[in-house]
């Protein structure tokens, strides 16, 4: 066991080795905005913290050859917003990530950390689910690609095995909108919080759409947060949008599907009835924003 308490490796391979050697007693430190707060509250006390922000693949964003994006798992929210191409292609993901905490938190908090904290209310996760994002997980056996919606398995739990870490997120290419007659796409994320900032979502809804040249929705994905033990992909809500121009009836149907899919709990942040109801409202509203971003008749 490494007795240093803190390591800042430069490669994924070193990180995997450190995680393996620690055998569960280590935690990956990306932005630290959840982990260090949990340590302060006495909820966890890992022997070793492995700072992954000095690993180039985890700390960078790049556009891939197919026109999609590769986002390092430890890139902070503020840096996402500084990447103009990413903001143009995936405004919903960036706005979801940017909703996490304050500007101070944005200087640190990452998509990887938001996902691996395992919270059902993680703001970026429904937007990533809606986008069809996958993440690259590295471990002792090499790397694997996992859909974002399959990562969180229960509150605070993920599918990552000992020795594994999330390296990056992959976003598919978007129609770029340069041809007025071609398909266009848009995404959006909304959350309900009691204040205007600095809260954990009571409900979060992410919607991603593709429209054909006639403005008919050809593809849609919907992600919901804070309405079940894990963030949800809600295919029934997406299905209610596909094939429509997102008229009021389609939006209402998508909202109803989202409410029906929600299986929330009563807790200090909200009630079952409230969460189900507002899941529908936010899905509807997020779909309208995504529609407008795709150039539809929102």
């Amino acid at each position: 066991m490494n007795g240093s308490g803190y390591e800042a490796p430069r490669t994924v391979e070193e990180t995997v080795t450190l995680l393996q050697q620690a055998n569960g007693a280590a935690r990956v430190l990306a932005g630290g905005t959840d982990l260090l707060a949990q340590m302060k509250m006495g909820m966890t006390s890992p022997a070793l913290l492995i700072d992954v922000k000095k690993i180039p693949e985890l700390a960078s964003i790049e556009q891939t050859a197919d026109g999609g994006f590769r986002i390092g798992a430890a890139v902070c929210g503020a840096a996402l917003a500084e990447h103009a191409a990413l903001v143009a292609a995936w405004p919903g993901i960036v706005e979801a990530a940017r909703l996490i905490g304050s500007e101070q938190i944005q200087g640190r908090a990452s998509l990887g950390g938001n996902l691996c904290n395992g919270s059902p209310a993680a703001d970026s996760v429904p937007a990533l689910i809606a986008a069809g994002a996958t993440c690259t997980i590295a471990g002792p056996g090499g790397t694997r690609s996992v859909a974002v919606e399959d990562v969180i398995t229960a509150p605070g739990k993920t599918c990552l095995a000992t020795g594994e870490l999330v390296v990056d997120f992959r976003l598919p290419p978007r129609p770029d909108g340069s041809d007025a007659r071609a398909a266009k796409a848009g995404d959006a994320y909304l959350r309900m919080i009691p204040r205007s900032e600095m809260d954990i979502a009571i409900v979060g809804a992410g919607v991603s759409l593709t429209l054909d040249e006639a403005g008919v929705c050809t593809a849609a994905r919907v992600g919901l947060g804070a309405v079940a033990a894990t963030p949800l992909r809600v295919d029934a809500a997406a299905a209610a949008l596909i094939g429509t121009t997102l008229d009021d009836a389609a939006l209402a149907a998508a909202g109803e599907a989202a409410s029906a899919a929600a299986r929330p709990i009563d807790d200090k942040r909200g009630t079952i009835a409230y969460r189900k109801q507002v899941a529908g409202v936010l899905t509807r509203r997020a779909a309208k924003i995504a529609l407008a971003r795709a150039g539809g008749n929102g």
């Binding site: 932005g31 630290g32 260090l36 707060a37 101070q104 938190i105 944005q106």
Partner: peptide
């Protein structure tokens, strides 16, 4: 970058 210094380790500022 603006951060909360309570959520950063001193070891990280090397």
């Amino acid at each position: 970058r603006l951060i909360c210094s309570c959520l950063a380790l001193a070891a990280e500022v090397e």
